[in-house]
Design a protein around this nucleic acid. Structure first.
Lengths: 144, 144
DNA sequence: CCGATGATTGAAATTGATTATCATGTTCTC
DNA sequence: GAGAACATGATAATCAATTTCAATCATCGG
């Protein structure tokens, strides 16, 4: 099932933190967003529906969402800003990134995950998370 | 065979760029280093053998080494500085990162690479490079 | 409901890695 | 070895992200 503001509120209550208008505003817009969004973009989007929420608070709320396991942060280029996506959709998918046009395609490959687990165990590691990104040219850029 | 300063010099000559004391100093120390090293660390190391080389020049030379295909930059944590390693050892290996102690183990998994290629082709991508990092707990941290 | 306590907010300042600037110094070609 | 182009390095600038801090707000106990 999809995660909602209720999940964040539960996390906040458990930690003795407070449920505020601003946090609910940020979480609401975040959960209504599909795909990747940067803190800056989320700030703009939140400002439209709930003006008066500061960029600082957007950053802080995204951090909380990460801690609560509801959001995942990614960084596709060395010099770019981080982007966030919902953890339930983030789980177990990887990315293909076009180095020319920047297009990002998500894909799944369960067999690779299995092999990752095995490789990790051979080195005494337990896997909590993984990051796999393939960089290359997409169809349009290759034929252009 | 291992790459050396000569390879950087060849690249520089081809591009009409100049071979300088500073670039040779940075490259020398870089090629003598195994594993990962940050620009800052390399700067300190270079300063010991060849004082008077600026941090700016270390960054610039590392950029050249990357362009020449002799170095590879990685960034293991969102907020950390980039680290560099020799391209010939970097090629086709991936990383296991302990989220507790920060230990980094390198491993190879040719079968995963093959599957990556296949997955990419299914989405119309050609693969130029890839990044795969597994995050978890190493043996010592798990049993501690 | 009220007041105390401690968390939260947001504007501004700060950070930290990396890059740009620019005057000066160096390399390489002819 | 002269000249043009490139390189250097101290400093300033950048930029996402975090910290600061005084003012505000949420929550709990009574």
């Amino acid at each position: 099932m999809n995660k909602t503001i209720a999940d964040l509120n539960k996390y906040l209550a458990d930690k003795g933190l407070k449920i505020t208008r601003q946090r609910e505003a940020v979480a609401q817009v975040f959960f209504d967003t599909d795909g990747h969004i940067s803190a800056e973009e989320l700030y703009v989007k939140v400002s439209r529906s709930y003006p008066g929420v500061g960029l600082t608070t957007v950053y802080r709320t995204l951090k909380l969402l990460k801690e609560a396991g509801l959001a995942k942060e990614r960084r596709f280029a060395e010099d770019s800003q981080g982007v966030f996506e919902k953890e339930d959709t983030a789980r177990h998918h990887d990315h293909l990134i076009c180095t020319r046009c920047g297009k990002i395609v998500e894909f799944k490959e369960p067999l690779i995950e299995k092999l990752q687990e095995e490789a990790a165990h051979r080195h005494g590691f337990s896997v909590e998370d993984h990051k796999m990104e393939l960089y290359g040219l997409c169809n349009s850029c290759r034929t252009a």
